[in-house]
Simulated assay, not measured.
Amino acid sequence: MTTLLPAAVLWDMDGTVVDTEPYWMEAETELVAAHGGVWTHEDGLLLVGSGLWNSAAVLQSRGVDLDADGIVAHLTDHVRRLIEERGVPFRPGAQDLLKSLRAAGVPTALVTMSIRSMAEDIARGIPFDAFDLIVAGDEVDEPKPHPEAYLRAAKALGVDPGDCVAIEDSATGLASAVAAGTIAVSVPHIIPIPAGPGHTTWDTLVGRGLADLAELRSAAGSTTEHSHEDEAARR
């Protein structure tokens, strides 16, 4: 007897694998203040899930007198410094689910709008080889909510996006995953995501395992053959 698992699981990073959104907000607040402006928590919420260069344009409109590349470099350096000082705050359940996927041989990708060097830092902070592939924000022409990043990940892994589960925490990222045709799962963190067609909402990744992913894949149907032994899909 076999159970159908996803052809791959595609992971957002900030807010999904790691809880770095507060670090980004702190970096944005410091940068705007250095240029004589005020940046509130509510302002920061507007950028959750956005591409860094899109965020740079918003910060420029709030008085930050740097070019877009300079803003991205400043924010990234600030967040990396906070990670070095305070550590990588992983989201509950993320590492356990990743470990289960690796043990079952299910391909995984990190699909993030952070730049590659930061994504690699995060991946190295996981105490096992968690991802087959990274697609980063400085490698795509169109940031989320455009589907490019997820489509690239599926193509690089050699799988159909419709057979992949994508896990996201923001409405922007979720829109990207849905547009790419993946089996989209939202795990809201800082910002609530309304229930709606085209995605499944989980309150947390804690306690989620291969059986839950197999159930999603089965409910969505299959476009390619990719099965694993039933034993591997048990909790």
Rank of each mutant, 00 (worst) to 15 (best):
S55N: 09
E215C: 04
H226M: 08
V185L: 08
E168V: 02
D43T: 11
D65V: 12
I71C: 12
L151T: 15
P192Q: 04
G209E: 05
P145D: 13
I183P: 00
M1P: 11
L210F: 11
L210D: 10
S222K: 07
F90P: 01
A130I: 05
L133F: 11
L59F: 12
V206A: 12
V58N: 06
R80W: 00
V72L: 08
E142F: 11
Y150V: 08
I167K: 01
L210P: 05
G37Q: 10
D69R: 15
D65S: 15
L75G: 04
A195V: 10
A184Y: 00
V48S: 05
A211V: 09
I71T: 09
A175M: 10
Y150M: 06
H228Y: 08
V140P: 05
C164S: 06
H189P: 00
V106P: 01
A195T: 08
A130D: 00
T108Y: 03
A184T: 02
E168R: 02
V79N: 02
R80C: 13
S222A: 15
R116I: 14
A109L: 03
G158V: 12
T201Q: 12
L110A: 06
V140E: 06
L205S: 00
A33W: 09
S117M: 08
E168F: 04
P6W: 12
A119H: 01
Y23G: 01
G87T: 04
V38G: 01
A109R: 01
R102H: 11
D138S: 09
L66C: 03
P161E: 09
I126V: 15
M13S: 07
L75W: 11
R116V: 15
T40M: 12
A153P: 01
R217T: 13
T40G: 09
D203N: 13
